[in-house]
Structures are given as structure tokens and as C-alpha cells.
Design a protein around this nucleic acid. Sequence first.
DNA 1: TATTGTTATACTCTATAACTATA
DNA 2: TATAGTTATAGAGTATAACAATA
Lengths: 156, 156
Amino acid sequence: MTTNHDGTLERLFEFATLLTDLLDRGLEQQGLSRPRAEVLWRIHHHGPTTQRQLADSLQCTPRNVTGLVDALDALGLVERQRHPSDRRAVLVALTPTGRRTVDNLLAAYRSRASELLDGISGPQLTSFLATLAQVADRLRPDSRPPPVDGSPRLAR
Amino acid sequence: MTTNHDGTLERLFEFATLLTDLLDRGLEQQGLSRPRAEVLWRIHHHGPTTQRQLADSLQCTPRNVTGLVDALDALGLVERQRHPSDRRAVLVALTPTGRRTVDNLLAAYRSRASELLDGISGPQLTSFLATLAQVADRLRPDSRPPPVDGSPRLAR
DNA sequence: TATTGTTATACTCTATAACTATA
DNA sequence: TATAGTTATAGAGTATAACAATA
């Protein structure tokens, strides 16, 4: 017997929209688009990264990474470095300005999270997150295992 | 005293990503992009709609609507009709094919919702949705009131 | 004068394909 | 021969600005 979940799915989608809008507003304050922010985010977690690795983790083409890195380079947030052992490859690293930008993003999100969650009791939050994890598990396509490095792909 | 919610916000963002990915996979099966699907969705709920109204509800420029309607028209999902009283305006309506496409989307989402939520007990789901609504209320910017017509903006 | 929707133009993100320098 | 990253080209979505037709 299948329960009628019609309105529920729409509420979930609206929730997702609100969350990604929150994310976007934070990025916008730093003058960043979502794809560009995601590149910074990856490098922040992995350290200097080849464009090939970026293409794999962002699930886009190498050509696309070229454009994103070009743009971030022009903004002074990122720089290309020589790969120590492979002269075909390029390492993309954060500049000091890039590091500061990521720090600003993190600080903004920490304060946002407080506003969002502080009024909710510990047990209520725990139960909420447990159900959320349960639903998330069913949402995860087999092709994409849960992130292991603490840097989930930012919402698209 | 502010609790440390660092990982929590990231889990919420990942959840949003998974949900919007689910949404996109459904749209992709109907050969639709998110902006185009949103136009269909709006017209499905409001009936024939002027491009001005579409621009307002999608929060984009009229120029943008022109492009989206052109594309949906070329796909045979939508047609432009004369406005009965304002000869400047255009009414955009679903074609029979467009209606069938929307019906397919709805059916697909109903079955997806079952897969996603059926194993969760009634009380657990109720409590989950209550907390979700509480967080959603704090997420909603003043500028965008909660949807009143059952057609929340699709996630971006 | 204000509004509706268009043309003109430009920018971002995305993709495929062909090419180069290296492995 | 395969891989890393580029150039070339194209298409979708978005924006602003100028304009035509209508209100």
C-alpha cells in the first residue's frame, strides 16, 4: 500500500531551493558563481590540484575547467603552478586572496548555520538529521558514493 | 552560546544537491531543462499565462522568457495565443503534448516520492517535516513569500 | 507616458572535436 | 599509444539596452 506523498515531495523540493538560494547569496557576496566557488572549495580541501582531478571531481569536461581556472586566475584567487613530476599537468593552487575568500565563505556559513539551527533543541535536531540521512541514502545514485573528504559537491 | 553546526550545514547542502539531482534526472527523461520545465509547471498551475507574468514568477527578464517560450514552442509543448483584451500581450498555453509531458513528470515524481518516503513511519515523517518547515521558514527571504498555489519554484 | 515583448549584444557555463606537448 | 590541457566552435541560460506596438 502506497501512501500519498504528493505534497511532501514538493515541500522537499522547495526546501532544496531555499537552501541552494542561501548558498548562492553567500557566494554572491564574495562575487563568486557556484562553479567557481566549487573549484575553490575543492582546492581548499585537496590542496594544489591538477585540472584533470578538478574535472573528475566536478564531473565536467577538462575544457570547462580551463575556463573556470582562467576566470579565477584573472580574479587573483588561484594560480597555476608547474607540476613537479609531470610536465603535461598543471597544479592549481589558492593564492593568499583565494584563501581569504574561502575563509570568508566558511565564516559566513558558520554564522548562517547558527541563525538557522540554534533555536532547535538537540534531540529534535538529532532526529531530524537522522531522517534526513535516511532519505539522503535513498537519494544517492549508485554512481556517486558519499563524499569521504568532508567536501560534498556544492548544490547545482 | 552558539552550538557548532559546521558539519550540519554541509549535510543540509548535500541533501539539497541530492534532491535537485533527482529532480534533474526526472526532467532529463522528458528532455527538459530546469528553466523550461519551470515554465511548463507555471502554465500547468496558472493556465494560459502572459510572458510578463512568467518573467515575474520565474524572477527573470522578459527577454529570457522569450527564449524559453521559443524553445518550448519549437518542441511543440507550448503555443502562443492572442490575448483577448490586450494586443501587446501574448498568452502562453500548453499544447496537448505539453499537457502529456507535465502529466508524465507528475507521475514520475509520485512514484519517486513513494520510493523515497514509504519506509519511514508516519510519526517520524511528521516530525521530520515539522522541523523541515521550521528551518524553511527561517530560510525564506522576506522578498519571496511562501508559494500559495502549490507550485513552489523548482530548485535552481 | 507606461507596459509588453522583441531585436541586438554580451557573459557564463557547458559540451564535442581536433590538436600539442608530454608520458 | 595514452594522457593533460589547450584552441575552436556551438548551444543554453542569463542580463542590459534600445525599440516597436499598444495601452
